[in-house]
Amino acid sequence: MSSLDMSSFGYILAAIFLPLFPASMLFNWLFFRIGNVWLRSGLLLVWPQLGLWLLAAVTEEPPVGLIYWGVLTAGLYAFRACALRDFRLWTAHMATSSWALLWLAAAVNEGGYEVNLQAAAFSAPFVLLAWFIFRIESSFGAAYAGAVGGLALTVPRLAGVLVMTVLAAVATPLFPGFFVLLQTITQALMVVPGAAVMVLGVWLLWAWAGTRILQGLVFGPASSEPGADLAGVTTGLLGSVLLVLVIAGIAFAEGLA
């Protein structure tokens, strides 16, 4: 595609898909309204890739201001996720927060398909979470922390795999998110030190948001009778998906040369 002459128009378009603050409201509004789980997962996978593709189309370096704006957006959405009780909104906000960091990743990365892989690494856990949202909403009516609580007691297997996926989403080690963040900070610290340190702040907010949602949904007294738990097979399947994620994570780490 020929390089767009008006680079600022390109950035506005990219800002929708690599969510910068005002434009990011579109994705969240959209994600909250879609009911179908496959559509949601597709959306989660494709959205950042579109943004990266648009960004690649705009040849020259994005101004540093955009990078800082991206990291600030990530901070804002992570901070707001700490107070959210609806699991769908929480997933949307955390996804937005992780994709906003891709501005920094794209800027410091030499190019090639490296960034796209990083975006996929960020999106993978959220796709799994979308499936969990669908599963909880169908068996308990809504995925709402506080009203639907104590999943560890009512559906232990589902709760176990859900906890592992949330850990993957907040970039806990051996999952790819951890290595992506580490690589971005390694490359960015000397170039844009302020942004790199702020990424660490976002990482801390992710941990807080993760514990808040887990306390609301998984831990605490059981709010309903024991429902239908995952079958052994589906648990094994989800476990193996997480294992694949871990192996991808370690493969990512090789790139940390």
Partner: peptide
């Protein structure tokens, strides 16, 4: 309270 009608919990909030 703790017997919220779960389907409308978000609109309630």
């Amino acid at each position: 309270g703790n017997d919220t009608f779960v389907q409308m919990a978000h609109d309630l909030e």
